[in-house]
């Protein structure tokens, strides 16, 4: 359980960090909270030559809100969001999601940027930020890119990040009318990575809905048929179940009968959670 040797540096700027991460001939990694990376180094699942500590770069800590959007710097920790230290124009959704991640001691250091960069299929922030249609701002040697999270994460633990890239933060559009949402998670033990994560949102009382399912495949997916059905006034549970079945088949491969029942139950739970609001 001890990491293999590596070199450690703590650059003073994003530009300096980007250059360090791109060091020729070296396997490098950026560390922010380290709550996923350090165990991976300790278990020697990840082997690196150089660790670049970006945890003290103030440029990655900004949190701002305008009437149109909220900016959350990549170094924002889960517990800062949980404690309401970031603007909450999403009716409490981000606070609720943050408070359910792992354990408090981990949330005190784990960051939203680190979670998105790792792109664990069972992580919470990818689902949440896809549901909120956020974009991620990436600075690298080839300039600045601002992909949507749904495009940024393209597979299990795989993003469009390339060597020398650093996530600055996330731009989340403000809902035009109050957002309603539901969140449900299946995990064997509170704080453990989930077996199913469902986030449901709707704009206002009868606006369009979004449904995102995570931990069911390599990356979270939008459940389009389910979202359409949810927005139909008076839709029955039977109709919702049929839509969920269609979406599960369209978006995920190899789910067994148990997994399908579990994901269906979890999405229905999230939908009920939203309707209760």
């Amino acid at each position: 359980m001890k990491a293999a040797p590596f070199e450690y540096i703590r650059p003073k700027s994003v530009a300096e960090a980007s250059v360090a991460l791109g060091r020729r001939g070296a396997t490098t990694a950026a560390i922010a909270g380290g709550q996923s990376l350090i165990p991976m180094l300790s278990l020697r699942v990840a082997l690196i030559d150089l660790l670049v500590d970006i945890s003290r770069l103030d440029d990655l800590k900004a949190v701002t809100a305008t009437p149109d959007s909220t900016w959350i710097g990549s170094l924002t920790t889960h517990s800062q969001i949980e404690d309401g230290k970031t603007p909450d124009v999403f009716g409490g959704l981000m606070r609720r999601v943050a408070g359910q991640i792992s354990y408090r001691a981990v949330r005190n250091h784990g960051t939203i940027g680190g979670s998105i960069a790792l792109a664990d299929p069972a992580a919470d922030w990818p689902c949440c930020l896809i549901a909120l249609d956020a974009t991620v701002r990436v600075v690298g040697r080839s300039g600045v890119t601002v992909p949507r999270i749904a495009d940024f994460i393209h597979d299990s633990y795989a993003t469009t990040l390339t060597t020398g890239d650093i996530i600055m933060g996330f731009d989340i559009p403000a809902p035009k009318v109050p957002l309603r949402w539901g969140f449900a998670k299946v995990a064997r033990k509170s704080g453990a990575f989930a077996h199913s994560i469902a986030i449901v949102t709707a704009l206002g009382k009868d606006g369009p809905a979004t449904v995102v399912l995570g931990a069911a495949g390599p990356r979270p997916r939008q459940m389009v048929a389910t979202a359409t059905q949810l927005a139909v006034a008076g839709a029955t549970e039977e109709q919702l179940r049929a839509a969920i079945a269609t979406d599960l088949d369209a978006n995920f491969e190899g789910l067994d009968a148990y997994q399908k029942r579990m994901h269906t139950a979890n999405i229905l739970r999230a939908a009920r959670d939203m309707r209760a609001q």
């Binding site: 380290g34 350090i38 001691a105 981990v106 005190n108 250091h109």
Partner: peptide, 9 residues
């Protein structure tokens, strides 16, 4: 802040 000392260098 409560911190896992095994998850901090």
């Amino acid at each position: 802040l409560a911190t896992r000392s095994c998850l901090t260098l």
